[in-house]
Structures are given as structure tokens and as C-alpha cells.
Simulated scan of single mutants.
Amino acid sequence: MIMQRNVFEGAPIAVGSAEGFKERMRRITDSMLDEGALLTVNYRINGGYAPWFALRVWTGREKSVEKTLEAMGVRSLVPMRKGPYLRRRGRVIEGSMMPVIHGYVLVQMMAVPEYLAGLKGVEHAIDVLGGCEQPMRLTDAEVNRFNVLACGGVYDWERPVDLVLKAGEPVWVTEGHFRDQKGIVVTPNRNGRGDVVIAIMFMGREVPVTVPLALLRKL
């Protein structure tokens, strides 16, 4: 008869460590982002331009995530535009600044899955558009052009656009995170200004996105 030993040998992992799971993961995240940011900077200094990726974040936290990444040395950008005018007691108040596309921060980093995965550890970040293995990329020139158009007021809420859309119409995204993607209008716009909600088929599922009317053209 074989006797079984109920004795554990060796030392349990992480027992007695003062560092908790969240702290350990945050340390790993910070380390990966530091390494990725350094390589990206060195690559740019030597004349190269690392690709840009869209990091999906909590809506309303875009600038907060941008500041966090910049503080860590990670180049990031939230293209901004003027929001709708406010009309109160006969006065017209100029709209406040808002992201061109809500819920996303553009990040420039070397295309290494481990570095991109580190972005998800940043507070208020959700995931990388397209996934860390095969993310959707933007070139440095595309991002610069998109930001120049935004700064020039092309996507401002009150800027009139000669385009009327109806629900169910197919459209094409001309710039930004979803550049060259086809979408279907969900929420129509007959005012010739402001935003439109479209659904983009991405990675086998429909992704709803709110974009300026000026960012679209009919197919």
C-alpha cells in the first residue's frame, strides 16, 4: 500500500510580500511604458517615426489619460475642437473645447505587443483599438494632418457642412482613428452641423462612434 504524503515542500509564492497584486501590476505597467517610451524617443531622434495607435478610454477622461501618459514620457494626443454654442437669456456663449472623437487618445509607441498591453494599465484606459497584437495604426503624417484640421476649426460643432444624412445611409470616415473605414448612420443629422452617430464594423462586431459631420462623406 502506497502512503501519500500531506507535506508541502518549498516556499509559497508571494507570501510575506508587502506588495499587493494591484501594486505589482502597476509596477510592471510603468516599467513597460517607460521602456516603450524610451525606445520610441530614441527612434524619433534617429530620424524614424513610430506608428500611432488609438487607446480607448472612459469618455470624459481623454485629457486626463493624455496628461498621465505625457508625464510618463509617452507621446500622446487628443485632437480638440470647439463644442456647441450655449444660448442663455439671450446671450450666446462660445462652446468649450471637446475631443474631436470622444473616448479615444492617440498614442505614439513602438509596435511591440507588450508595450501596447502596458497602456491598458493606465487609469481610465480600456484597450487598444484593434488589440495589442494587430492594432489599427496611423502614420505620423496622418496624425499631424488630423490635428492640423482640428486646430483649424474644420471639426468645430458650429461649422456648417454641406451634408445631410439619414439613418441607414453608408458613409466613409475621412480622417482620424477610423480613417478609411465604412460606417452606417445610426443617428441622422439634418442640421448641417454637429455630430453623427455611426456604426463601424470592426473585428467582427459593430462599434458605435460619435463623430463630427465634417469627418464623413457619403458613399
Rank of each mutant, 00 (worst) to 15 (best):
L38K: 12
L38C: 00
L38A: 04
L38M: 03
L39E: 03
L39R: 03
T40G: 01
V41N: 02
N42K: 03
Y43I: 00
Y43W: 07
R44V: 01
R44A: 09
R44S: 12
I45C: 09
I45L: 09
I45D: 12
G47Y: 06
G48F: 06
Y49W: 05
Y49E: 02
A50L: 00
A50G: 03
A50W: 05
P51R: 10
P51I: 08
W52A: 02
F53A: 02
A54Q: 07
A54P: 06
A54S: 15
A54N: 05
A54K: 02
L55H: 10
L55M: 14
R56A: 05
V57D: 01
V57A: 03
V57T: 13
V57Y: 07
W58M: 07
W58A: 13
W58K: 12
T59G: 12
T59F: 00
T59S: 07
G60N: 05
G60L: 00
R61V: 00
R61C: 07
E62V: 08
E62W: 05
E62K: 11
E62T: 11
K63E: 13
S64K: 07
S64T: 08
V65Q: 11
V65R: 13
V65I: 08
V65W: 07
V65C: 05
E66Q: 14
E66P: 00
K67R: 15
T68L: 15
L69E: 09
L69S: 06
E70Y: 07
E70P: 02
A71S: 15
M72T: 02
M72N: 03
M72P: 11
M72F: 09
G73C: 06
G73Y: 15
G73N: 12
G73D: 11
V74P: 15
S76Y: 14
L77P: 08
L77I: 11
V78D: 04
P79N: 02
P79V: 12
P79M: 04
P79Q: 08
M80G: 10
R81L: 06
R81D: 03
R81A: 02
K82T: 05
K82W: 08
K82C: 04
K82G: 05
G83N: 12
G83S: 06
G83F: 14
G83D: 11
P84R: 15
P84I: 05
P84T: 02
P84K: 11
Y85K: 14
Y85T: 04
L86M: 09
L86C: 01
R87Y: 13
R89C: 13
R89G: 09
R89W: 02
R89A: 15
G90F: 07
G90A: 15
G90I: 11
R91D: 04
R91N: 14
